[in-house]
Design a binder for these strands. Structure first.
Lengths: 273, 273
DNA sequence: GCTATTGTTTGTTATTGCCAAACAGCGTTT
DNA sequence: AAACGCTGTTTGGCAATAACAAACAATAGC
């Protein structure tokens, strides 16, 4: 457990404020509410906000009683640079666009971060229903196609440890909510070389994901496609998965990594030890 | 001028550190260097970094002497939400993609922020040279097509004030480096309804931009296309501009604003006062 | 093996960020 | 119209806290 010391109080509160303003979105947030939500005085919140505004992290509109604080545009650059620093999005974008064009569906790529899969880029299909495809979204490990790809690729003990730590809350009637069921699905994922979310996170939504692997066979990213379950009959999944895997392999090879077939083969035979 | 008081010191230093880590990019940054660059002790920098890591703003790789700090993935979500809070990117993306498909070139959309135009979204063309199309990039007002669209649309006194404040540094031999030349170009921009950057910011690079206008005729955004100057003969510019304006108008109308023709007409006749 | 780094701790000081309360400005109500 | 209630902004004063310097452990490179 991380020690609570060696932390900067005012900075933590500033991040609380930024987070609150983020969820406020377009409407913006007010100083008084922010101060109360964070649990500090108005004056303290005021000083923090002034500092953040001077650096472009926040912006304000309106005057007097109608003043509202919103996220600032310096975050756009930081977010983009955070994606770049993963080192995969730049190479992935053209491949993602190819995939989207080939199958006519929005595709996304996610990387693993601590205990969740984070979407770092997407290629939107022209006429596609826009689900919650927000960048930076953290996909739960146990009920997302990308999450299960990462879990299946890592050592079994690590996967179990993560599942026990984060839990596996029931999101829909189809969510796999026992460790046994999840482990069985991870086995199936390894066998078929791709991960599936069959309405396990959101009713009516299905996902298929394939891994992107490094030179040592570890999963460095996962490419996924999301669509309405009713538009994806069960017998259409293998063909879709084949296309996703082909594009994911292109990315793996472009980065000097293993193909999906190689990586899963290695992973399956490593489970013995 | 903003008062230097009512600011939080530690928070400012934290933002310095984030900024330094951002420019370090893929290589990452080291604690000792960061502390020295910011001008604080290692212990202070350490506490700040620990706080930022606990919140996902930073991430670390390596152990011991090879430890490197990079931007964290929570910034991805914040950056995306900052774009969303402008309220234009969501509506703009499909239109931007249409424009890119129609002309075969990467298109971008920028909003005005204080004294620069900030790129908040882009639609990449399949086989296009990738310039510095980074999201969040701040385009200088005096030597970018989008910047000049914003300047031309605002009251003359405001534009001059901004130009005097930011200056108009010479970037290439073609950069307009006198106030008279810039004002003449803003006049031309108003007349022709689109802005041009003819190798004024970067040699060999040309841009064309059109405004997106609100209900009151103010410029809320600008759509631009960037390409190599040698691929864009002078007599091809009007046709390209016409296409850009048509798509920008679609966006303006979708948001309940004025068309380019209406907005520029109003703007030109307002200059009298 | 040693040296020169690194990131991580530890106390100690006074700087600094916090609170409470008073202020000015605006919108709504009385 | 004049009182109210609500903003965001400012002010002093106190003490919590973020800063420093220095010692620590652990590693990479010679």
């Amino acid at each position: 457990m991380a020690d609570e010391s060696y932390r900067v109080q005012s900075l933590g509160r500033a991040l609380d404020i930024v987070e609150l303003i983020a969820v406020a979105g377009r409407d913006g947030a007010r100083l008084t509410d922010l101060a109360q939500s964070v649990g500090i005085s108005k004056a303290a919140a005021y000083a923090i906000i002034q500092t953040l505004m001077a650096r472009g992290v926040l912006s304000a509109t309106g005057e007097g009683m109608t003043k509202r604080y919103r996220l600032g545009l310096s975050l756009v650059r930081l977010g983009d640079m955070a994606v770049s620093s993963t080192g995969i999005a730049d190479i992935a974008m053209p491949i993602l666009r190819d995939l989207t064009q080939a199958i006519g569906l929005t595709s996304r790529i996610a990387v693993w971060d601590e205990e969740a899969a984070v979407v770092v880029a997407r290629a939107d299909a022209p006429d596609n229903v826009r689900f919650d495809a927000a960048l930076g979204r953290r996909e739960r490990p146990h009920c997302s196609a990308v999450g299960k790809v990462f879990l299946a690729a890592m050592p079994r003990a690590d996967a179990v440890s993560i599942l026990e730590r984060t839990g596996y809350p029931t999101r829909t009637p189809r969510t796999l909510d026992t460790l046994a069921a999840l482990e069985a699905d991870l086995d199936a994922t390894r066998q078929r070389h791709y991960g599936i979310d069959d309405e396990e996170d959101h009713e009516g939504i299905a996902c298929v994901a394939a891994g992107v692997f490094g030179y040592d066979g570890s999963a460095v990213a996962a490419i996924s496609v999301t669509t309405l379950k009713q538009l994806l009959p069960d017998d259409a999944v293998p063909a879709l998965a084949k296309s996703i895997i082909a594009h994911a392999d292109r990315l793996s090879l472009a980065m000097g990594g293993m193909s999906a077939a190689q990586a899963w083969h290695k992973r399956i035979h490593l489970i013995a030890e």
